[in-house]
Amino acid sequence: MELVEAMRTTGTCRYYSDEPVPDEVLHRAFDAARFGPQGGNRQPVRWIVVRDPEVRRQLAALYLPHWEGYYQAVLDGVRSVGAVPKTVESANDFAHHLAEVPVLIVVCADLEGLHPTDAELDRLSVVGGASIYPTVQNLCLALRDQGVGSAVTTLLCHDEIKVKELLGIPDGFITAAHVAVGYPAKGFPTKLSRSPVEDSVSLDNFDTPLFG
């Protein structure tokens, strides 16, 4: 698959078939993902592939209460998600069927391999993720190249302590995301909805558009 096509059609897959994902497909995806950019080539990311139905059920049971609180806030108008109702409803269906997704991948990161240069600023620290999430996106693109869908979620990070206990994740490692993986039941999107380039690119200062 051509790279830009993969980038423009790797949407969040929320409906999966029950077809198993072979080891060789996952191996090719992980093999490509590991070349994601990361500070100092520290390679902090570790993956846990969860296929066991009971473990998937337990992860889904931890996930659902967090989703339901979020979903209710959307319904009550307390939280604005900027998503069309159809998208929110598909996410709700996804949450209630998470245990049925063939593969759940828990993304872990070695704290010693992260270098969050914004940790002392008076705001949310995000820089540490720069050595994690490009690798995760590489994984999703490499899966898409093989006709496999994915959905990245961070809701389960609320329950990191329980997830670490369930999966035997050692001290010094964090959970950074969870990726649902499987063959899509409804195919891939032909067009993803995103804001135009003109709305997000500036020249020399924040208020001067580069394009348009």
Rank of each mutant, 00 (worst) to 15 (best):
C157V: 14
I174Y: 01
V179Q: 05
R8D: 06
R28I: 08
S90Q: 10
D118V: 03
S131P: 00
L167E: 09
G128L: 07
C108G: 00
E19Y: 05
V78L: 12
L75N: 08
T190D: 13
V78R: 12
N41C: 08
Y63F: 15
I48L: 13
A177R: 02
H27Y: 15
Y71F: 15
E100V: 00
T175A: 05
P170G: 01
D52Y: 10
A91N: 14
F211V: 15
A99M: 01
T175F: 02
V103M: 07
L167R: 07
D204W: 13
H115Q: 08
E54L: 15
V88G: 11
R28Y: 08
V107R: 00
D52A: 13
H158W: 04
N138M: 08
P184N: 10
T12P: 03
Y15P: 00
V126L: 11
P85F: 09
V179W: 03
G77E: 06
T10A: 10
S131G: 03
L166S: 12
H158E: 13
P102A: 04
P134S: 05
L3I: 06
N138L: 04
L156A: 11
T175G: 05
A95H: 02
S125A: 11
V163P: 14
S202I: 01
L104I: 14
H158T: 06
W67S: 04
R28F: 06
Y70Q: 13
P53K: 11
D118G: 00
D145H: 13
V45I: 05
P116C: 07
T117I: 12
